[in-house]
């Protein structure tokens, strides 16, 4: 039976299955155990798996993430929760220097199979310090992987792949999406008995012919809404390509879609300067220039720190209306 579960439940199922799959998988983070998770992603896991596997950390991101990196060198597979991915900035040295470069600097003698996960999104009126979207920053660093699921199915399949991956994976979720429901098959419906979504493979969330929206995370949801408006009101059939991971990046899927529709708009909730869309539009320009019928556009959050005031912050993020308006400018 196809079932509808939330993004939060999908993540939890993925974590639970991996805790069962491998004794070396542990979860560490602030409030992940006895409190059941600040956003309830880990609810019930401490009760099921106990103190050894599900560990409440003090508010000490540099310390506990660095500790997880050290443990991972010995074969432990820590899944570290950041209550907000914004807090990665207090663990930056550990996440950029130690996780990303130990393999290289040891000539390949070491690997760091760690997952750092948590919500990386704006739009919840918590001010600039809690609203960072650092996918471009971490994807800038060779040695790291950055994953950004946009729906429950991908959230479950990608978290399981991330935990099994032997490189550091930074897994960026969205508090806005935690309550989103979607179809996630139960394991008995799946060939192989479990849901694994490969990292590095994009997914067409809506087939189209006239232009391509290239998006990740919650921007995929916004693009799908914009595509419906374009179809209903403007007779434009937009394709929505969900990157699912920023690094590795599914370049083939991007180029295939652009070659089909001949128009591309990169949409993200990230900041514009050196954003994910900047990288992708450069690649499209180099590889598919002759296929384009219009300049590649980029839609991002406003180039300003997140505004607290709820009605104003809403204006900072890409909206279906903004996306429709920009799409009409090139169609």
């Amino acid at each position: 039976m196809p079932r509808e579960i939330t993004y939060r439940e999908a993540l939890r199922e993925g974590l639970d299955e991996e805790l069962a799959h491998d004794d070396n998988v542990i979860i560490i983070g602030e409030e992940v155990a006895e409190y059941n998770g600040a956003y309830k992603v880990t609810e019930g896991l401490w009760k099921k798996w106990g103190d050894k596997r599900i560990i409440d950390a003090p508010i000490s991101e540099a310390g506990f993430i660095g500790m997880g990196i050290g443990a991972s060198m010995l074969g432990i597979r820590p899944v570290m929760e950041l209550m907000f991915f914004s807090f990665a900035y207090v663990a930056f040295d550990q996440m950029m220097n130690n996780a990303a470069t130990c393999r290289y600097m040891s000539g390949g003698l070491i690997n760091v199979p760690i997952v750092v996960r948590g919500p990386a999104n704006g739009g919840t009126n918590v001010g600039a310090t809690h609203s960072h979207t650092p996918e471009n920053i971490f994807a800038n660093m060779p040695g790291l992987k950055v994953v950004t699921p946009s729906n429950p199915y991908d959230a479950k399949g990608l978290i399981k792949s991330a935990i099994r991956d032997n490189d550091p994976v930074y897994f960026m979720e969205s508090t806005v999406l935690y309550g989103m429901t979607g179809t996630v098959p139960s394991n008995d419906e799946i060939e192989g008995g479990e849901l694994l979504v490969p990292i590095g493979k994009a997914s067409v969330k809506r087939e189209g012919t006239d232009l391509t929206f290239i998006a990740h995370g919650r921007a995929v949801v916004t693009c799908l809404a914009a595509a419906e408006i374009l179809a209903e009101k403007h007779n434009i059939n937009a394709e929505v390509l969900d990157l699912r991971s920023i690094r590795p990046l599914d370049e083939e899927a991007i180029m295939a879609s652009v070659r089909k529709t001949h128009r591309a708009i990169c949409v993200e909730e990230n900041k514009p300067f050196c954003g994910v869309g900047a990288q992708i539009s450069s690649m499209i320009m180099e590889q598919a220039f002759d296929d384009l019928d219009a300049p590649v556009l980029r839609i991002t959050s406003a180039d300003a720190p997140a505004f607290y005031s709820p009605p104003i912050e809403k204006l900072q993020l890409p909206s279906p209306d903004e996306i429709v308006e920009r799409a009409l400018s090139i169609c």
Binding site: M67, I69, A71, G75, Q94, N98
Partner: peptide, 17 residues
């Protein structure tokens, strides 16, 4: 100082095993 949390992690790994 960057290695000091890693040292705690190596000790964690020994204890966990």
């Amino acid at each position: 100082g960057g290695q000091t949390p890693l040292g705690a992690g190596l000790a964690f790994g020994v204890k966990y095993k």
